[in-house]
């Protein structure tokens, strides 16, 4: 029984429950009804309560269900890629976008996927260049390319 409570499934459903709870509590800051119609707090309260109930229902159904023996895919690679994304977005605002995007692709190709250096470099450079050309050059998106663009 204890193992069942500690699965990722359970934690994920629990996260939704907490979100519902947060909305229920938050909605109380706003008037629920004014004049003829519901005011700002009404529907957030309803949605929050519904999400709380439904995700609670999912948790109960997980408890009652037969233990799921399904083999999950390993986490490492996805975590690495996610980490790379966080680093890229964090640095976008400081050093422009060419370098972080190129570095992210190189990191994934070389370290995560262990692909050959030359092809990785060519593809990363090509993709980064195309994005810069299309979005920044042609569409004039004010996305700084490099640190000295600021």
């Amino acid at each position: 029984m204890k193992q069942k409570i500690l699965t990722g499934d359970m934690a994920f459903a629990g996260g939704w429950t907490l979100l519902g709870l947060y909305w229920v509590v938050g909605s109380l800051d706003f008037p629920l009804w004014s004049g003829f119609a519901p005011d700002s707090g009404f529907l957030p309260l309803v949605y929050g309560a519904l999400l709380l109930l439904l995700s609670g229902g999912v948790m109960i159904s997980l408890l009652l269900a037969d233990p799921d023996e399904e083999e999950r895919e390993p986490l490492t690679k996805s975590m690495l890629v996610l980490g790379a994304l966080v680093v890229v977005v964090a640095s976008l605002g400081f050093i422009g976008f060419l370098l972080p995007v190129f570095a992210m692709m190189m990191f994934i190709y070389l370290y995560v996927e262990r692909l050959p250096l030359l092809r990785s470099t060519i593809i990363s450079a090509l993709v980064t260049g195309c994005l810069a050309l299309i979005f920044v050059h042609w569409l004039a998106v004010p996305l700084p390319l490099t640190p000295w663009d600021f």
């Binding site: 992210m104 994934i108 190709y109 994005l131």
Partner: peptide
């Protein structure tokens, strides 16, 4: 990896 770059 290019898909991620395009998304961003």
């Amino acid at each position: 990896p290019p898909i991620l770059a395009i998304c961003l």
